[in-house]
Design a protein around this nucleic acid. Sequence first.
DNA 1: AAAAGATGGTGAC
DNA 2: TCACCCTCTTTTG
Length: 273
Amino acid sequence: MPEGHTIHRLAADYRERFGGRPVRASSPQGKFADSAALLDGTVLTTTEAHGKHLFLGFPGEEWVHIHLGLFGKVNFGDIGADAPAPPATDTVRLRLANPESYVDLRGPTTCALVTDAEKQAIHERLGPDPLRADDTPEKAWRRISKSRTAIAALLMDQKIIAGVGNVYRAEVLFRHGIDPYRAGRDLTPGEWTAIWRDLVLLMREGVRLNRIDTVRPEHTPEAMGRPPRVDDHGGEVYVYRRANLPCHVCDTEIRTAELANRNLFWCPTCQAR
DNA sequence: AAAAGATGGTGAC
DNA sequence: TCACCCTCTTTTG
């Protein structure tokens, strides 16, 4: 679930359901209980996302800083006159509720009350985010263009670019025909600009649909005259988790390898050196 | 029933 | 580079 598009979508959904009015806050699991008690009954004033970090704003410049990590999940639900919120299970770190909605947060890496200064420090250590309107590719390029590290690793480094995860990095490299092991400094400025612009489009679409779709119209099964396919994570992708399956474009077997403890996927033909 | 794996990140060596 | 944290689903035996 959680790459940057998920977090930006969550920011919008939290704001829409809970923004501008008092919320009930609780932590059935207990780890956030003291902070939830402080927030209970106060107004959720705003929400914000930067990369994979979510911030829920409360009065007094206090923020709930949430990072889902690999396993974190958020579940929204409706409350009706004859349909109360279901009892929270004991893994719910934070439940917010008002008369119409509830939302449960489970398994986050981070759920902590932070000051505005602490929030600023988090922004400062993150790179530009393709989903933040004021962010630009130049700041990332300054580091990428000097780095001997593989572009596939740089794309996952949140200090360099924020919000890209294992799916988007594999897919955007495929879409641009770039070998994942090419050093950052061997990319051309034009290649980097194209990657950034593509990430902006792909991730915006990810926010809108709440899933990752990366296959171009000309490569859909219908366009290629092949049987329909469904990837098991909901979206349509070229290479992510398709190890040893034929490339949608050229039929070469998709390769996989471990890179910095994560699974990398690519097509050795479409992404030749 | 148990194990493995997952769209992430940190801190210790 | 490795151990570890958090939860849930899927795969394996």
